[in-house]
Amino acid sequence: MSGGVDSAVAAARAVEAGHEVVGVHLALSRAGGTLRTGSRGCCTIEDAMDARRVADRLGIPFYVWDFSERFRDDVIEDFVSEYRAGRTPNPCMRCNERIKFAALLERALELGFDAVCTGHYAILRDGENGLELHRSSEEAKDQSYVLGVLTADQLAHCLFPLGETPSKALVRAEAEARGLAVASKPDSYDICFIPDGDTRGWLAEKVGTAPGEIVDRSGAVVGSHDGAHAFTVGQRKGLRLGVPAPDGKPRFVLEVRPVSNTVVVGPREALAIAELAGARFTWAGTAPDAPHEEFACDVQVRAHADPVPAVAVVRDGELVIRPDEPLHGVAPGQTAVVYAGTRVLGQCTIDRTVSAVPAAV
């Protein structure tokens, strides 16, 4: 129970369905003064109190479990190390993978619980070869992307009561009707452990600053920076380039090279990616029948991006994905989730990309 409206209604529906429900809020920070800033952040003191009030209203036991050390090691430190390596991590994916459906689920099973129930918008269905994870009925709120890291064993111990709900407005209306005080509470967004939204400043404190060069694709120096970690692939603003492009068009970050502390920029068309691959891949349920042979799929590289038709194959220890049309602004460290229709097949953390545009352009 995060303290938001989705998990509150999910808990209410689980109670109504006849399950023996216990509310658990995760304490992910040991900073006692951690407070919510508007819609930013989650898992704060206010959120814990909101969750407790909902549990009291539902008449279920409520506990706060301290996972702050695990969260620091598995999510925050991973976030910092990925940026140090010049990659663009997704901390929500790591949190789902290593905290909510690993650490939390492991403890729950040890204590005799059967499943972890959350307010995620996704659907579990029995397929011919086992349990399948599918998109929710509401595409605008669908959260199957961030659940793409879950394995078959984890899915077997999950409940997602909101998956079939057509809209978030209906969830809020249900919370209001049930007398839950969080009915109109704003959704949280941004990175929960950077509640003020200043990711660049937060990283500067953790990683430090070091002057470096900004170069174009030919290697010519066109600007300077205070730390490569502050840049992400696809970034346009804040580059402060001293040399304009020959064609006068804006330039974008194409690559971050942490070893040399160099940022590479170029034209927007150079962001087009023809292939992406990752060695850290998993299947959400049963693997494709012949993953070492090319299979058709859709690929999604951001939580709110549109899926794109593609072909994928497991080759040389990597999940290799080739979209039918080039993708733009894809960075190592992001997560690529592959689908078959509405079904989540699996995911990989992107290790490398292949540009669709030769470097001479």
Rank of each mutant, 00 (worst) to 15 (best):
V9F: 13
A10V: 09
A11R: 12
A12H: 01
V15Q: 06
V15S: 04
V15N: 04
V15C: 15
A17N: 00
A17T: 05
G18A: 03
G18M: 00
G23Y: 02
H25M: 01
S29C: 05
A31S: 11
G33Q: 11
G33E: 09
T37F: 09
S39T: 10
R40W: 13
G41N: 10
T44V: 05
T44W: 10
I45D: 08
E46I: 10
M49S: 10
D50E: 10
A51P: 06
A51D: 09
R53V: 08
D56R: 14
R57F: 02
P61T: 08
Y63F: 12
Y63S: 11
V64I: 15
S68W: 11
E69R: 15
E69H: 12
F71N: 13
F71G: 05
R72Q: 15
D73M: 07
D74L: 15
V75T: 09
I76Y: 04
S81A: 14
E82G: 00
E82S: 04
A85L: 06
G86M: 02
R87T: 11
R87E: 00
P89M: 04
P89T: 03
P89R: 01
P91M: 03
C92W: 03
N96Y: 07
N96V: 04
K100N: 06
F101Y: 14
A102F: 03
A103Y: 09
L104A: 12
L105G: 04
R107E: 13
A108D: 04
L109I: 04
E110V: 10
G112H: 03
G112C: 09
F113H: 13
H120I: 11
Y121L: 12
L124W: 13
R125W: 10
G127W: 00
G130K: 11
L131P: 05
L131Q: 05
E132Q: 15
S136V: 00
E138T: 09
A140P: 00
K141L: 12
Q143C: 07
S144E: 05
S144D: 02
S144P: 07
Y145G: 06
Y145W: 15
V146K: 08
L147V: 08
L147C: 07
